[in-house]
Design a protein around this nucleic acid. Structure first.
Lengths: 218, 218
DNA sequence: TGACCTATGTAGACATTGTCAACATTTATT
DNA sequence: AATAAATGTTGACAATGTCTACATAGGTCA
């Protein structure tokens, strides 16, 4: 079967038909994608390194050439998630004014979390590990957080948002949407049966924005 | 070696020196306690059913007489955590007026979470499981949530809290403190270096209470 | 071109772990 | 006292993460 693979290396990752070469080409990316799919299907708990490898079509030890261990792969998956989340937040922000942008970001955040529930769980499931272990992960998480901070700073410069420490405001806002997302994912909100997570997100971010909005006094 | 254990059964659980009896007495409780300790020491990920059994001094299959599987034990641990949390919230509530009580509850909540970080993680780590599997867990979680709701209802009757749907208000409040707790536990807040979780909790609950407080308009 | 080095992928082996079955012992019930 | 129901034990097994040693591909340089 090696006779048909002579002219296959003209481009390594542009051909749509994958040939079983000894060297995969971009195994790292493929592993992350496969892990992501399996996690979405059956949750993180059920994720198996061996199955990820099999899904990609490599032997069970191949992933270890790209990730130190299972935790490292999960960290990479989480990293990927933060990148996507950050992108979605930036897109939602659009050209809105700070206060409206804040609300839009909040709703988009919760939307991302509940839409990619399993993935979102991974993003915050690796958290107990020391930040030193996965600097890239905490880096992109910080960047995502920064989207919030920047919006608040803009609002303060704009004069539409209360002039207290913006980082602290951002931490509160983040706490609100993160908590809302987690509770929604875990089914702790539906149990009370009051409204969908999306509706609550709209309401919560409205309330938050109102609280942060500059009023006559300060 | 069985010759020395004749008169050992005078009382089963009141003696301070444990004798290796065939029947443990209250194995279920002991298993939960041991699991709790091990989790606090090395995290949930590192928890092993076999080690829990060994810690209690019982064979590896003994726990299965009291818990269907590992997940069931974890659910029991989580349940225990919710009970303790609920108790702490009720104690913090004291005889304060609704608005102050709300703040006190919020701060106590975050305090519990960061103090019992590993345990708190377990409480919300079993969440992806369907509520049907562990009804007692969701029951006590709901009771904990109810402490919040009741406070808000009291505030509405009192006229000190805005008269919107109290459950929704409670969901927002819960989201805030839960998100704050989780981010603090995961080290996502210290990374930004702005203040301790406790300080932020004080600030956040103050802001929340202010937002919910009844104002001239509504 | 061919020798060699490094990156990458593979197969074997092993300790750990959750859990099923079958057996033992203790306690409760008749 | 006899028997059933709880409760605890040991043996076995498949799945999993990961170590070690080996194989192969691609690039470098003489």
């Amino acid at each position: 079967m090696a006779s048909t693979s002579d002219h296959s290396k003209e481009h390594s990752n542009r051909s749509s038909i994958k040939k079983p070469k000894y060297h995969h080409g971009d195994l790292r990316r493929a592993l992350i994608q496969a892990a992501l799919q399996l996690i979405a299907e059956r949750g993180v708990e059920a994720l198996t390194l061996r199955e990820v490898a099999q899904q990609v079509g490599v032997s069970r030890m191949a992933p270890y050439r790209h990730f130190a261990d299972k935790a490292a792969l999960l960290a990479a998956v989480a990293e990927e998630g933060f990148r996507a989340l950050k992108a979605q937040l930036l897109q939602a922000a659009g050209h809105l004014e700070p206060v409206e942008r804040l609300q839009a970001i909040g709703v988009a955040y919760v939307d991302y979390a509940v839409t990619h529930a399993a993935h979102y769980r991974v993003m915050f499931g690796t958290g107990r590990a020391d930040p030193q272990s996965f600097p890239a992960l905490f880096q992109v998480a910080a960047e995502t957080f920064d989207v919030l901070v920047q919006t608040l700073v803009a609002g303060q410069q704009n004069g539409t948002i209360r002039a207290t420490e913006p980082k602290q405001q951002a931490q509160m806002a983040w706490s609100l949407v993160h908590g809302l997302s987690m509770l929604a994912i875990d089914g702790h909100l539906t149990a009370v049966g009051c409204g969908s997570a999306a509706e609550l997100a709209v309401e919560a971010t409205r309330s938050l924005a109102e609280g942060l909005r500059r009023q006559d006094g300060t």
